[in-house]
Design a protein around this nucleic acid. Sequence first.
DNA 1: TGTAGGGTAGACAAATCTGTCTACTAGACA
DNA 2: TGTCTAGTAGACAGATTTGTCTACCCTACA
Lengths: 197, 197
Amino acid sequence: MAGNAADITDIGRESSARNRVMDTATKLFYAEGVHAVGIDRIIAEAGVAKATFYKYFPAKDELVRAYVQNQSRLGRAAIDGIGKRPARDAILAVFDLVADAAAQPGYRGCPFLNAAAEYPDPGHPVRQAIGEHRRWKHEFLRGLLVADGNPDPETIADILTVAGDGLLIASHLDKPANLRHLIRETVLQILGPSADK
Amino acid sequence: MAGNAADITDIGRESSARNRVMDTATKLFYAEGVHAVGIDRIIAEAGVAKATFYKYFPAKDELVRAYVQNQSRLGRAAIDGIGKRPARDAILAVFDLVADAAAQPGYRGCPFLNAAAEYPDPGHPVRQAIGEHRRWKHEFLRGLLVADGNPDPETIADILTVAGDGLLIASHLDKPANLRHLIRETVLQILGPSADK
DNA sequence: TGTAGGGTAGACAAATCTGTCTACTAGACA
DNA sequence: TGTCTAGTAGACAGATTTGTCTACCCTACA
């Protein structure tokens, strides 16, 4: 099992070993938490030597930061996949992603909120990476609100962010049976009556 | 410093040593996270012998569960302190507690959400204690909505819970300048126009 | 006076954590 | 052929983790 005959499919891309580490870390950190998963476990499950690991990630926190950025990349890709459609529909579709994620087998809430809970210092690189993702998402929502002709996109983007975080929490800790309905109700209550429909 | 001439003021109450452990754990767990704080650190700062600690808390997880329950007790006391007043005012007052807490020096978000992030297994006693607190709070809000004559207290209690969690997250991670305003706007947007004012 | 309860101090075991370092292997390429 | 690169395998150090156990101290109380 030791890394002989490794993934040929990865040749030419970043680095086979680095990718395996990143994938394994993403899986384990999300499923069990950052502090609960040790380096030894990651390199064992990724089938990578310790020296190789420390070549790509000089310290564990570097890996955690890269993990957060990887999750951010995945999240943005999912949202970008929504594509062009009427702004109000797009907003609802963004929130539907929460329900989609919550329906996945290994769902364990929002990776950014979970990671932030483990890093008390707001100045820590991991927290900063989380902050970057949050600012991007807020800006994305604000843009959609402007396109929707919302009279106060700044405030409503704040409220939608609040609702998004709350729904991520609820879908994780409370697992409401009617999550999709709850999402619709919440967002529509915030956006108010539609002008064009 | 060793515990000779300990707090005389505590005599007759639970147990001086146990109380000191609980207070220290509450402070450290909240400020730095559960996994990040070790037993050795807690007993050192509490000025308690290791044997004494393990007498009251057979394992660390027992202490963590007690910590969550202690936070629940403190949270309920704060909400109970709101007292009798018109239901809508009471709801707004409950949410104002978030802003009050966020204004405190060592604020680090919601202790329940932070702790939950460190315990992946929903069946774990710590998670169950968190679930109990959340159900209690949801029920409290629902009661206020019924008293307010809300036509759909169940759904609106769900949405208010979502908003409460989201606001706790925002007040922690985003630190919006106008938090009190954001809270008012969010809650009023959810409750809709007041009938009696 | 004797005893029981609550507590202290700290050694110890066994595991686990991060991070470093040495020695080796296999393939690509000039 | 020789060299460079990416990687493996794993010992090791040093700190830290939870939890157990022994020996002792002090005070209240019968």
